[in-house]
Design a protein around this nucleic acid. Sequence first.
DNA 1: GTCTATAAATCGATAGAC
DNA 2: GTCTATCGATTTATAGAC
Lengths: 215, 215
Amino acid sequence: MAKRAGVQHRQTEESRRRILEATLELAAERGYEGTTIALVSKRSGLPSGSVYHHFENKDNLFAELIEQSFEDWMRRAGLHESSPRRRAALADFMHDRLAADDFHHGFWRLGLLLSLERRMVDSAARQRFLAIRTRMLDTLTTCWEDALPGDVLAHDDGLARRLAQFTMATSDGAFIAVAAGDEWDFRELSCMLADALHQHVARVTQTVRQGPEPA
Amino acid sequence: MAKRAGVQHRQTEESRRRILEATLELAAERGYEGTTIALVSKRSGLPSGSVYHHFENKDNLFAELIEQSFEDWMRRAGLHESSPRRRAALADFMHDRLAADDFHHGFWRLGLLLSLERRMVDSAARQRFLAIRTRMLDTLTTCWEDALPGDVLAHDDGLARRLAQFTMATSDGAFIAVAAGDEWDFRELSCMLADALHQHVARVTQTVRQGPEPA
DNA sequence: GTCTATAAATCGATAGAC
DNA sequence: GTCTATCGATTTATAGAC
């Protein structure tokens, strides 16, 4: 609360940072349940009492971790939600999203774990992650809306969202494949996704403009 | 071991079944860590001592659960790995896989959880699931090999496997989307995947037969 | 095979000296 | 803010009566 002394304030920030860092490492390795306060205390070098001084409880610790990690990731990836019309090629988007180490080792794995566990429905950490996920889906939808021809959009206003859902699903699925130990050629598969969706959009566009093909 | 008495044998089978059933329900709700022996005991109606009589330990209980659930699911879905050339339309495959309730509530959620948690790498349950997953990937690859024209296969012998990886990734991603609470129109999205991959294959086929298009 | 009782370890969280 | 010590609940797993 009181930030009279700059030194104390800096120490607080540093302690918080160390705790969050330790929690992120452990959570990526062991999930929510597997990350105990005792382990966080051990890895961060601070006693468990300090953890509860900086964070209300375990759930709150994870919620703040997800928020912080997301902002860090956005910053490091050079992404800003307000950045105008960032429309990288889809293959590049997928490749970046899948191949980046700091993404793999970061909070997304934890988020997927929280998403899958029904018992966590009331958890603040899970809700925080789902909110972030929704924002990313909206951003992806906007990307697709920019990419689609106007007449196609007008003909089927749900298409952009479905393409966005599809892109995210494939990305999440690829993440799981890596976690499961499958061997993936990211570049090859990113290109395949990009081409498949491109061809699909081309066919839909053709259908809209020429009317349905004669069966 | 001894199966002298049919009654005792039947009682053993029944107890095992009840324990596995209770574990599956709990695991789908609460994941691996969240499913405690005490809860299994409570829901199955048998004391915890019985659980340890029928199963060596918690990990072993989960490993047998995954094996059993997979066989049940295969049976109920009418699938047999030996069934000759089962080549349903891809859209149907995706739709069946995604929309079936007994699949959602079954062991796949647990398997994905086990896949994502690195701490479980040495777990027998996780390894059992990954083995099943590999078999499904092989089956999917065979499906694609049957579906692809011979000359395309000869030109790129990795294509069928990549298409299989892609199909499974999208399926897993869709599973996560449902778990995350996204609203999905399965029929719509299954058709989109089917068409996108169909168009992709068509383009690859054309390229193989005509040589690369003039840039 | 079923069930009670409990061991041994660990969990999240708190109190209070410093 | 840091840290020790610990509470009460819960965990996996076992011992042994029935």
